[in-house]
Design a protein around this nucleic acid. Sequence first.
DNA 1: TCCTGATCATGG
DNA 2: CCATGATCAGGA
Length: 223
Amino acid sequence: MLTPPSSKEELMARCYALAGLTLGQIAAQTQQQIPDNLQKYKGWVGQLLEHVLGATAGSKAEPDFPQLGIELKTLPVNATGKPLESTYVCVAPLTGEPGLQWHESWVCQKLQQVLWLPVLAERTIPLADRVVGTAFLWRPNAAQQKVLQQDWEELMDMISLGGIHNIKGATGKVLQLRPKAANSRARTDAIGAHGEPIKTLPRGFYLKASFTALLLQEQFQLA
DNA sequence: TCCTGATCATGG
DNA sequence: CCATGATCAGGA
């Protein structure tokens, strides 16, 4: 475990040093074992890169680099630079959180400053041979902030009014609500159709892949 | 091929 | 159970 980076510049320098390296090379530096596949280690890539960059370990509800206010997200991409997956943001409060405003929300806080770290991650490429790309720091611009806020408000309104069962993955332009649980039997508190307390599958907020694709395009001027 | 629901590991 | 890290995998 490295010491946490003391500045944004130091963090970026560490990232640039990783660009072009394979996960095998990085794992070797830290004497980590590489799993054959990610089926039983789905968070392995993210945790490896957190480790080598000096992120705060653990499952604490705070940014990966608390002093810098920066959240780290690995982004699996294909050979043409398109994201292969949506990006998990945070769990969704399903009990309404009366009066919670967008700027106070977990989603807004987490997305204030994100360090994206693309990883070439087509499933045909063995884990050890997958290459780390060039990291970039992203802060949502005004337009992005606006659409994120609109989506969040729409989703939170539906949740608060007992409409969680009407929420589909397609609800929201860039932000979506999807299951986030150990399995489909998991249950958490939520609001029923008539305002009554119910138990339902825990959900999380995700950024759609089409949205992160735009961020990559902006950054790298992809065709 | 893409999307959405389901799932896996770990730490507290 | 919740929050961290995400990807899997079947059906549309």
